[in-house]
Design a protein around this nucleic acid. Structure first.
Lengths: 351, 351
DNA sequence: ATCACCTGTGGGAGCGCTCCCACACTACTC
DNA sequence: GAGTAGTGTGGGAGCGCTCCCACAGGTGAT
């Protein structure tokens, strides 16, 4: 009868109230059980859990969100067009790490693209409505207004990479400088003498740091830095191809290239092949990211591994801590929550 | 003062009530304006809109969801691991079409992967909690229990492709049969005499239909169907490579291959190249999907174009109609809402 | 016996909306 | 002049939770 009533009312799902009645306890007690409060006796807990199972009770998220003023959802915001998101293995790796870590909680992950003005507008609306408890930001350029908006709205956020040496937001980054150094040192150790580099967009701090590392490693080894050997790419395959052509035109004698990402290295490889250069015999090639592309390239690409999945996991940890932390924002600002994870050179056949 | 009060209360956002007070109207009237009801006089509407703008009012989604029993969100459910999602351009194209159509509404899109048991479990919880108003299903295999679950929960859903000739759910599909026919006819017209095919997983109805089309086109032309020329793939690049190797081993004399997807065609191309076969001189190759891969392949791949973005848009149209439709489910069942969109052969250099 | 202080529990208030009924007012009709 | 219909508006009730105060009953110190 009770079961029938519960199911009868317009296909309605059982409510807390009904579970409470069934278990012979009060509404508050059921709520405590559902939310794992320790202040419930073992016997009561068992009874409530039985009632929940019998009625097939599932909490109403909207009611919970309204009463508790939280949404149990976080957003991964990608300020790029979808096409770039799908073309760049970096993003899907981050997504995988984030997803893995989040699946151990009750939190839901939203994927939001903000690659053009219209989408930015919608995102702003979305954030203003506080439809997520926190935000993960990937691939943020130096002058992006998004972080500012987030802090105005007092929405917890964690950034992947940094915008500058003194990032205000909590962030997770890899050691781009050291990674670039290790790549160049490796090429030097292999006896290469004319090492070029294809950088990413330099308004991305990480790309800048990789360039810094390239320069530092050469200087460290007592080699001059030839500015003609430095060409700016844009993280795309096409950009890598174009940059490589420029390099070959300007410095036909180069014998090694350090690319700021695997995707750009793939583009460079095509340009090298077009020009009849063999890899690694004529020109050694090293990438960055150690993505799937590196393993499948012909020849397999030596690359600087970033622990991208681990970075995704770390971002979630930081963000959840940030959300749980209800001290005033001012107090939080003082602690710097910046993680820098180590990189590692993975040697393959391209160098 | 009013402004200060609104902002003062714990950083709280303005509520309907406050907007109403500011505009000198009642709560109901503000609600009507927000929701675009026509039963509001022009003067009142203007006053309310001014108040909304002044206070920076944004509706509280949780409250709305609780009161109206809707979430203004739909989910795109991908019953595959993320890796496949990212490897297969088909998915990102669908996503783009869906996203484009949805951005013209106030609906939010969630992307949910259900590639393993744990994620299925979470998805079931999620659906049981009615956290979305509707579901888009892509790449559903014949024996998947998901559609059944959805109809039990009475959640509107639209399926991409079909599970069988008489699909119960509203669906959007392309004309796989005709597309395969056109590919085979094209190869025959080019004078090819030994045409092989690499199929997708045959528990996917579309893959089966492409195979049917292949057979029908040969029969139509009075050619025998040699079963040794039919090998099953699994929609992956690796599967395409493996299938191509099998074909070459069994029928070294073949002079054309129709692959059930561009990704498999890419795998087949590798196997052909390994075997020293030139494309198209020795073996002509045709794919299916006309994805970015086809355009970028070397040589560019002839492929059967499906209007994937358009299919995404159509899915949203169907789903929104389904959601808006509040007649009893039984009545709905009678109308068949099945869309089949035409395909088109795009000729390039591989055939 | 009195007081203090735990632990476990019940249930009121309230989150910010939508839905809908009631009502004032106008504009016709017979 | 009474009735009828339609239009615009106000505000009560209620959605299903969480939060928190109140309180019962037990335990140990005084």
């Amino acid at each position: 009868m009770a079961g029938h009533a519960a199911r009868g009312r317009g296909g309605g799902r059982p409510t807390l109230e009904e579970v409470a009645a069934r278990a012979g306890v009060g509404r508050g007690t059921v709520s405590r059980v559902i939310n794992g409060s320790p202040r419930v006796s073992a016997a009561t807990r068992t009874a409530v859990e039985a009632a929940v199972a019998e009625l097939g009770y599932v909490p109403n998220t909207a009611a919970r969100a309204l009463a508790a003023n939280r949404t149990d959802a976080v957003a991964l915001v990608v300020p790029e067009p979808e096409t770039r998101f799908f073309a760049e293995p970096y993003f899907s790796d981050v997504l995988r790490g984030v997803g893995a870590q989040l699946s151990e909680t009750e939190m839901q992950l939203l994927l939001i693209f903000a690659g053009n003005d219209q989408r930015r507008q919608r995102l702003a609306q979305y954030l203003a409505a506080h439809r997520v408890d926190g935000v993960l930001l990937v691939s943020v350029h130096a002058d992006d207004p998004l972080p500012e908006l987030l802090s105005q709205l007092e929405i917890p956020a964690v950034i992947s990479g940094r915008r500058s040496a003194d990032e205000a937001l909590p962030s997770v980054d890899s050691d781009n400088f050291a990674g670039a150094c290790s790549a160049v040192e490796h090429l030097l150790a292999r006896g290469r003498t004319s090492i070029a580099t294809i950088t990413g967009r330099l308004d991305v701090y990480g790309a800048q740091r990789r360039l810094d590392g390239y320069r530092a490693a050469l200087r460290e080894a007592g080699r001059p830095v030839d500015e003609r050997l430095i060409v700016q790419g844009d993280f795309t395959e096409e950009g890598g191809r174009r940059a490589m052509r420029e390099l070959l035109a300007a410095c036909p004698g180069l014998d090694a290239v350090f690319a700021g990402s695997d995707v750009m290295a793939a583009g460079a490889r095509q340009a090298l092949r077009e020009a009849g250069r063999r890899i690694p015999e004529d020109v050694a090639l090293v990438g960055f990211d150690d993505s799937a592309i590196a393993r499948h390239m012909d020849p397999p690409l030596t690359s600087v591994r970033q622990p991208i999945e681990e970075m995704g996991r770390a971002m979630i940890d930081l963000l959840l801590a940030e959300i749980a932390d209800d001290r005033p924002v001012a107090a939080r600002r003082l602690e710097r929550r910046q993680l820098v994870l180590p990189t590692e050179l993975v040697e393959r056949d391209s160098s």
